[in-house]
């Protein structure tokens, strides 16, 4: 039995662990993949107060070591369910079952998939969710970016410097992202923007060789030969395992106010998987502090 079990060892979860340990509570953090969360994907963080520049991997390791040094226990196990038994919460992982007085859900978010046939199979074989990570493999090749937000626009601009040709495929007739980025893209000779269209099939046997694009207005289909498809259609919160326990909004975010309390007493939510306006490291860390403080208050009551 632990005082607090934290699900997810991203910035929110590990910050919560630090605060709960400093309040002398026993803490178990359960993490599905690797400590650090999404931030490990970026080489450059430049907006975290006091730290002018740090890589995502260093940020993750420093934070992890800080939580460990304070006595938090971290296990690499994916949580598949949390049950509320009043004073006790049961947390089930892929390997074991644990009990805690309070639970903090800090599971963040993951890349939204297109939902196409063989998407998983072709991931890493032409389909990618990270242009800055994988762009280099497509030097002087033809690639496409799907999406209409800032990430998609920035990915297209980044790839335009590397690739032979970049198709930017957007399902609407205008972009949601910043106008200046859109203008810069329009000036690139090797960028072709395809509006009102969706990717409807992935082509190729062992590796991606092309895509089928469907025009949403005419219904017409065309095939485009290319080597890389970069998917930038947003992120989705990882809350499916808790949908029976707490309230989720339409987009799947865990409903909780600034005090990080869910409708279940003793179950808190912290970080990117919570309903809120700004999803950044500093707000994830802030949530971790608040959720842990609330959990300690709940345990001491």
């Amino acid at each position: 039995m632990y005082d607090v079990i934290i699900v997810g060892a991203g910035p929110a979860g590990l910050t919560a662990a630090i605060y709960a340990r400093r309040a002398s509570k026993t803490v178990l953090v359960l993490e599905a993949k690797a400590w650090g969360g999404q931030i490990i994907n970026t080489p450059d963080i430049e907006n975290y107060p006091v730290v002018a520049h740090i890589s995502g991997a260093d940020f993750a390791n420093e934070l992890y070591n800080q939580a460990l040094a304070l006595g938090a226990e971290v296990k690499l196990e994916k949580v598949i369910g949390v049950e509320d038994l009043g004073k006790i919460k049961k947390v089930r992982s892929t390997l074991a079952e644990y009990e805690a007085g309070a639970v903090i859900l800090a599971t963040g978010s993951e890349n939204r998939k297109l939902g196409l046939d063989r998407e998983q199979e072709l991931t890493g074989r032409g389909v990618s969710y990270c242009a800055t990570c994988d762009g280099n493999f497509f030097r002087n090749k033809d690639v496409a970016v799907v999406g209409g937000g800032n990430t998609a626009l920035e990915d297209a601009l980044y790839l335009a410097d590397l690739a032979n040709k970049v198709y930017l495929i957007h399902r609407r007739d205008a972009f949601r992202g910043e106008e200046t980025t859109v203008d810069r893209l329009r000036q690139r000779e090797n960028v072709e923007i395809i509006y009102n269209a969706t990717v409807t099939a992935l082509l190729g046997e062992k590796r991606l060789s092309g895509i089928e694009v469907t025009d949403k207005i005419t219904g017409g289909k065309r095939s485009i030969e290319l080597k890389g498809l970069f998917v930038a259609v947003g992120r989705i919160p990882e809350n499916e395992s808790f949908s029976a326990l707490i309230d989720l909004d339409q987009a799947g975010y865990a409903v909780a106010g600034e005090n990080c309390r869910t409708k279940v007493p003793g179950v808190f939510v912290a970080g990117d998987n919570r309903t809120k306006e700004v999803r950044q490291l500093v707000t994830a860390a802030a949530d971790g502090a608040v959720a842990a403080t609330e959990a300690v208050k709940f345990l001491n009551a």
């Binding site: 970026t42 993750a60 990570c133």
Partner: peptide
Amino acid sequence: TWCGPCRMLKPA
């Protein structure tokens, strides 16, 4: 060397 997830995979 520049790949964060690669570094995180190393301990495993």
